[in-house]
């Protein structure tokens, strides 16, 4: 049986590489090919990238990336204390369990239905505006609540919040309690213990959380489609519109640009992390 497992493992890994990893590289290859209808011709051309530049899609990537970055930072700011609370100081097991469940279920909720409901809540006659009017916060319904960057931001923060909390919670759980005690014993108050011990030790989880929040937020298609209002194009809109017009080389070029940006971010993050941990 061990021999069976021994030969199955490399086989599975090969399959995984062929089916999951190779397509990631295929995008870069297709992006520099010439297209003819649904098919590609095996000759090299940078036309795909030219089309991207012409249609202003680099700006779309940048704008969506900034929004996704903002979403991740807000999730980090609110998620870090929640993760530490979950991992360290949740006194009531029942409350902690409820929060765990609440943070697990969003992985499994249907994105379209949830976002549609949010659209009804944020609209001019929706419950949020009605509430604000009733409280005399505003005199007229706020029109920027829906079909705006703000709406997309709200639509993204909720669903991807658990992606931030989970990895940080796991990494805080792995920190030896004695280290935090030693920190306090050496005279570090809550802030210094956080800054010099907890934060550096939870950094792998924080980085994982940033990746797992920013990347799906960057590529989310449902939220911009239902809450963005079509006035502004987001990354997913660009991918969809390029592929519905069967411009697959430009779509592949867009995918390649996104992956290059992500690789660049990861690399610079890794370098910054190495410098930080050395100093």
């Amino acid at each position: 049986m061990r021999r069976l497992a021994g030969s199955a493992a490399p086989l599975f890994l090969c399959l995984w590489v062929c089916l999951a990893i190779v397509p990631l590289a295929v995008g870069a290859a297709v992006s520099v090919l010439q297209r003819r209808g649904l098919h590609v011709v095996w000759s090299l051309t940078p036309a795909g990238y030219g089309e991207l530049a012409e249609s202003g899609r680099f700006g779309v990537v940048l704008h969506t990336a900034l929004l996704a970055g903002l979403v991740s930072l807000v999730c980090l700011a609110a998620g870090l204390p929640l993760a530490v609370w979950l991992a360290r100081s949740a006194k009531s097991a029942v409350l902690a369990n409820i929060v765990w469940i609440c943070l697990t279920a969003p992985f499994f909720l249907d994105p379209a239905a949830r976002t549609l409901s949010l659209r009804l809540m944020l609209g001019a006659h929706g419950v949020v505006n009605a509430g604000l009017l009733a409280l005399h916060v505003t005199r007229a319904p706020l029109d920027w609540l829906l079909f705006s960057d703000f709406a997309v931001f709200i639509g993204l923060v909720g669903p991807y919040f658990p992606n931030m909390v989970w990895p940080i919670t796991l990494s805080v759980l792995l920190i030896d309690k004695a280290l935090l005690e030693a920190s306090a014993d050496l005279g570090a108050g809550p802030w210094h213990s956080f800054r010099f011990t907890l934060l550096p030790l939870a950094m792998p989880g924080i980085i994982a959380g940033l990746v797992m929040t920013a990347i799906p937020a960057l590529g989310d298609g449902v939220v911009p489609a239902l809450l963005g209002g079509g006035r502004r194009e987001y990354l997913a809109d660009a991918v969809t519109s390029l592929s519905t017009s069967m411009n697959y080389t430009a779509a592949a070029a867009l995918a390649t640009v996104v992956m290059a940006v992500l690789c660049g971010l990861c690399l610079s993050g890794w370098l910054a992390w190495r410098r930080l941990s050395k100093s």
């Binding site: 999951a20 990631l24 989310d220 997913a236 592949a252 992956m259």
Partner: peptide, 18 residues
């Protein structure tokens, strides 16, 4: 874990393209 680092819609596009 590598595919998790690619937005879902981009991964779908790449599988389709391939």
């Amino acid at each position: 874990l590598l595919p998790l680092g690619v937005p879902g819609i981009v991964l779908g596009l790449l599988v389709f393209t391939t």
